[in-house]
Amino acid sequence: MSRTAKGHRARRIRTLATAGATAAGLFLAVGCSSGDDGPSEAAGGVPVVEKGKLTTCTHLPYPPFQSEQGGKVVGFDVALIDLVAKNLEVEQKILDTPFENFKTGAFLNSGECDLAAAGMTITDERKKNVDFSVPYFDATQALLATQKSGVTTLDEVTSQKKKLGAQAETTGESYATSKGFDPVAFESSDAVLNGLRTGQVDAVVIDYPVVQGWLKDKANADEFVLGENIETGEEYGFSVKKGNTKLKAAIDKAITDAKADGTYKKLYEKWIGPMPKAQS
């Protein structure tokens, strides 16, 4: 997904605990996220913006990749970056930040974060501003509609003149636009779901794993119907500042090792569901 919020809103930077962290609690961060000790290095000479930490920028919520549970941030992305942090002998620290900065690499360039992990699709446009890790997830889009709409395909959305929604400036929104739609844009995945619930739209295009997560809730399963699966050839990657080859290499190694030793499969099944045979 290529999530980026539209419109004007207050810049927020929240520092959150992760399930893999020893520190507990949740608090608002004011100003720069770096610690008093300033930039430092992790194991292997990998540069980090805060001593003893691997600082990750994300944008919440986006289950099953990252979301808050019990005052901590958990999810597939979080678990994979915890593997990187363990190898670097540091602790992952997560900042909840505006997603519009991810395409430009603003928080990476300013030294507020070491990497971005946010269910982010690797695109040529983004590669101009950030360096991506090896792909860690093959993504597809899906159509989710209200039961009462009676639609399960984009063609039916058109023919029955239903309202379509998507998360603002995502690849889902881009795909819908490329097919001639003018989708209602929502700021977050939560807002997308609420738009369906409240009748603002009849159907939405969004990443399939997100839909899978929603439909695990019986109330959602009763109210909505999963429509067509849309193959877009998307792959997710973690991003680092341009030229940060040491951190990129460390992330790549953690992903590659996890796929080789079965850890990736275990985490995939925990947070997303059964792994497609082509990936297992």
Rank of each mutant, 00 (worst) to 15 (best):
K103M: 13
T198C: 04
K148L: 05
T97W: 01
A250P: 15
A191S: 14
E112R: 01
D131A: 02
P98F: 01
V157E: 05
Q279Y: 13
V157T: 07
S34D: 02
T4L: 04
S133T: 09
Y264P: 03
P64S: 08
W214T: 11
E269M: 07
H59F: 10
A23V: 07
K163H: 05
L115E: 01
A139N: 15
V211S: 02
G150P: 01
S67V: 12
N101C: 07
H59T: 14
R197F: 04
S174T: 09
G172D: 06
L26R: 10
I251A: 04
N129I: 08
K241N: 03
R3T: 00
A145D: 06
P135C: 08
S149L: 04
G195H: 11
M275P: 01
I94S: 04
G199F: 10
G233K: 02
K162D: 08
T4P: 00
I206C: 06
E269D: 09
L88E: 08
K148S: 15
K6S: 12
E91S: 14
A260G: 03
A79S: 14
A249K: 11
S188C: 04
K6L: 04
E269H: 02
A278S: 15
A106Q: 10
G237F: 15
V184Y: 09
K51M: 10
S159N: 09
A145P: 02
Q69E: 12
D182K: 14
T140F: 04
V49F: 12
T121G: 03
K127S: 15
W214M: 15
E156V: 03
P61S: 13
G243I: 10
L54R: 07
A254T: 14
G195L: 06
F137D: 10
A185E: 05
V73G: 05
A278Q: 12
S40I: 04
A260W: 05
S40F: 08
K253T: 15
S159I: 01
A23T: 12
A254E: 02
P274T: 15
T256Y: 07
G195I: 11
A24R: 13
T177M: 06
V151D: 01
S159G: 00
Y175F: 15
E125R: 05
P47Q: 06
L26V: 14
K241T: 01
V204I: 15
Y136L: 07
A250S: 10
Q167D: 09
K72I: 12
K265Y: 04
S33G: 15
G150L: 01
D182H: 05
K241Y: 00
K72V: 15
G7R: 01
E156M: 12
P209S: 10
L144Q: 02
A29R: 09
A19S: 13
N109H: 10
A221M: 02
F238S: 06
W214F: 13
S34A: 13
Q167A: 12
K265D: 13
S189M: 03
I94R: 06
Q212T: 10
A19P: 00
S34P: 00
G75T: 11
L108Y: 11
A185M: 06
G25H: 00
S178C: 01
A79T: 12
R126K: 10
L115A: 09
K127M: 13
T153H: 08
F99V: 09
D252M: 09
F186A: 13
S149K: 09
S188K: 14
G180Y: 07
A221P: 03
A79I: 06
T153W: 07
S149W: 05
S149C: 05
K248I: 01
Q200I: 14
G105D: 06
